[in-house]
Design a protein around this nucleic acid. Structure first.
Lengths: 223, 223
DNA sequence: CGCCTTTGACTGACTGTTCAGTCTAAGGAG
DNA sequence: CTCCTTAGACTGAACAGTCAGTCAAAGGCG
């Protein structure tokens, strides 16, 4: 047990570092993130970070993978708690298109850009992204199929819908992340839901929901 | 005249550097692009690059702007040569979703990722991107309105369509750029066109067109 | 003691930027 | 036409700062 206690402490340290690295990647970009920054944020020496990860590159790529996986894990978990297909769709859209103040949810906005840019150039990250994106489409497709089985959604090819819908969500999230005044979070949300409703043969009308306070703050905080 | 000749030569030099910088940004990423690389590619000394742009940052941001504008200029020009609304839509989709071998067309794939990542963190680039993206949506909206005026397209809000369609195109182009096996260029093209046709009340059936040889090479050349 | 964790000090490589000065060509004066 | 001046383009060498990674030693826990 004591051995495990030590190991657990070390694991926790590692995870702290990964989280800090992910945050820093979001803030400063992948290759402008310094080991010293990560070390400073977790209150350790740069040498210790190297001790744990061996090299800067491994730290950063692991950090990217870590937050990617956390995002999809969070998605899975949220969906399990949500019964109706329509609410599930809303959850998915909100996860991608609406700013969430949860700072520790690693899917913070800028990270996707860094992930794409890195995936484009680093084979290993690229493979990972393809795999996880497939998982994301599977999640969408499963929501659709479940909804169809429950008679809630009309008849469409779930796979096809997932491909198109995930692309649309990506595109909308770009605009939202880059604070495009024409595509604010509310509008992105409405566009995504309208598309889903039309494609899936259900109805969805925008109910004027106030954006959460946190989301407002996040948006106002743009310099 | 001789004075202008010199000035033109200098302008050309500048443009060479911008082009080289844009290519390097695509290959290595924004902040992994070295002045020495740019200098080497145009056969000059690093000092000369500084001589022209004053600072590395100015060089890189100008390079981003330069290729962004070139892309939209190319779009405008291509559309002017295309009469029918349907062909125009195809052109737009092909420009964003289908790999083009034109190496000097600066909208090479990876550049968008760098642009987004930089726009997310650098105020100045962010403003620029918002403005140019609006112009892009305007281009789409105009195509739609022209097509409606010609009776070719059904009645929809052109602005709304432009927002949704441009987001979809962005999302699809991400998958294509990252070589997702599920969303190859042909499928992305088909998805985009099907969406456009459905939304705009026209018909479009995928005709099995072979991808150009250049596009094939480009794709096969992925390491 | 023995093992794992942690650190401060250090270094070697890299790189943006400066600077002093060279080379070329243009322009004007005689 | 020839000589001289001037300006702009251009460079090599040097500088200064940054930063990933090394290492020997210390700390602490069992």
């Amino acid at each position: 047990m004591t051995v495990n206690a030590v190991a657990d402490a070390a694991d926790q340290r590692r995870e702290e570092m990964l989280l800090a690295a992910a945050q820093l990647i979001t803030e400063r970009g992948f290759s402008d993130t310094r080991i010293a920054d990560v070390a400073g944020r977790v209150g350790a020496s740069p040498a210790l970070v190297i001790y744990y990860f061996g090299t800067k590159d491994r730290l950063l790529t692991e950090a990217l993978r870590y937050s990617e996986k956390s995002f999809y894990a969070a998605a899975d978990e949220m969906l399990e708690r949500t019964p109706s297909a329509r609410d599930r769709l809303e959850t998915l859209v909100r996860m991608t298109c609406v700013p969430h103040g949860d700072a520790d949810l690693p899917a913070a906005w800028g990270l996707w850009f860094e992930l794409w840019a890195t995936a484009f150039r680093v084979e290993e990250i690229g493979r990972d992204r393809i795999e996880l994106d497939q998982r994301w489409r599977d999640v969408i497709a499963r929501v659709v199929r479940d909804g169809q089985a429950a008679g809630e959604l009309g008849k469409v090819d779930a796979e096809d819908f997932a491909v198109t819908f995930s692309a649309l969500l990506d595109g909308l999230s770009i605009q939202v992340a880059l604070r495009d005044p024409v595509v604010d979070p509310d509008r992105a949300f409405a566009i995504a839901m309208r598309f889903a409703a039309t494609s899936l043969g259900t109805d969805w009308r925008p109910r004027r929901r106030p954006v959460s306070v946190i989301a407002r703050q996040r948006l106002a905080g743009s310099r």
